[in-house]
């Protein structure tokens, strides 16, 4: 068995999967802490589905124009599409009496409907996009180009969240207190929404749209159960995400089960353990 594990590491595709998964776990873990503490679990879900609409639009454009270069890559359409949806959600929430949940629900439905429409317009033999992979992830199929995107996304997430952590955490604790100390909470929040959009679009390739929200929420929620400080929660969320990714990936290789599902089920098991440990007497 140990030999088999080392064998796996010899394959370039497995190395890419491992690296891509680790980077995704770091980014989603750090971001997930703020998603969980701000009650934005539904935002992760909504943005993931918005990215479905965006990727479908990208695929349609690629197919219709039989474009080369930049337009051949659906990500370049999905990214601005999802960013626009994130900004629209924040805007609707700020400017109307609607809660973010409601705003997210509306854009969620519209994006999925658009996605299905766009996909139906693509000629069946023109396979720029694999819907199954889009929905359920294809970590073992992460190519060198995707790996670059994931690395850039993870580096950006770590840099942005490290630079703003003190202010973002302060505003997450209590907006008014933070405002009274000169923190620009609206700007930070828009920034957080946009960052979430980038993380979601890029990591959708690893875990898939349907399981992405799990990646954002379960490690951070498990960490929350075991932490007495936000820093501790952040560190634990990243550790949990990384550990379940590595174990899940090897499990999926050995047992030949879908990797995304294996990872998320492991995370859920970890959550159950954390819930049991932290149970109030």
């Amino acid at each position: 068995m140990v030999v088999t594990l080392f064998e796996a590491l010899d394959y370039a595709f497995f190395q890419r999967a491992l690296l891509g998964g680790l980077l995704t776990a770091v980014a989603t873990g750090m971001l997930g802490v703020f998603v969980v503490q701000r009650g934005l679990a539904y935002l992760g879900n909504g943005l993931a589905h918005a990215s479905f609409g965006g990727l479908a639009l990208g695929a349609l454009i690629a197919s219709l124009t039989s474009a080369q270069g930049i337009l051949r890559e659906p990500l370049w359409i999905a990214l601005p599409f999802t960013l626009a949806v994130a900004a629209a959600i924040a805007y609707v929430r700020d400017r109307t009496r609607l809660s973010s949940d409601t705003a997210i629900g509306v854009f969620f439905a519209v994006s999925v409907a658009l996605g299905i429409l766009f996909l139906s317009l693509i000629p069946p033999d023109d396979n720029v996009i694999d819907v199954w992979h889009l929905l359920f992830g294809s970590i073992l199929a992460v190519g060198p180009r995707e790996l670059v995107f994931i690395a850039v996304m993870a580096a950006m997430t770590v840099a942005v969240l490290t630079a703003t952590w003190g202010r973002l955490a302060y505003a997450t604790f209590d907006e008014e207190l933070a405002q009274s100390d000169g923190v620009r909470v609206r700007r930070l929040e828009y920034g957080l929404f946009l960052l979430a959009a980038v993380v979601v679009v890029v990591s959708a390739q690893v875990v898939g749209i349907i399981l992405l929200a799990a990646y954002l929420i379960i490690p951070a929620a498990s960490a929350r159960l075991l932490s007495t400080s936000l820093l501790q929660m952040t560190v634990l969320a990243v550790v949990f995400g990384v550990a379940t990714t590595v174990i899940g990936l090897f499990t999926s290789y050995l047992a030949d089960v879908p990797s995304g599902a294996a990872i998320v089920l492991l995370q859920a098991a970890l959550f159950a353990v954390a819930a049991l440990i932290s149970r109030r007497p």
Partner: peptide, 22 residues
């Protein structure tokens, strides 16, 4: 949010630092 993971002293330090202490 009462579920925010923090101790009393961390809240006090935030008053000193004008940011949340890691």
């Amino acid at each position: 949010d009462r579920s925010f993971p923090a101790t009393a002293i961390q809240l006090v330090v935030s008053g000193e630092r004008q940011a949340w202490p890691a």
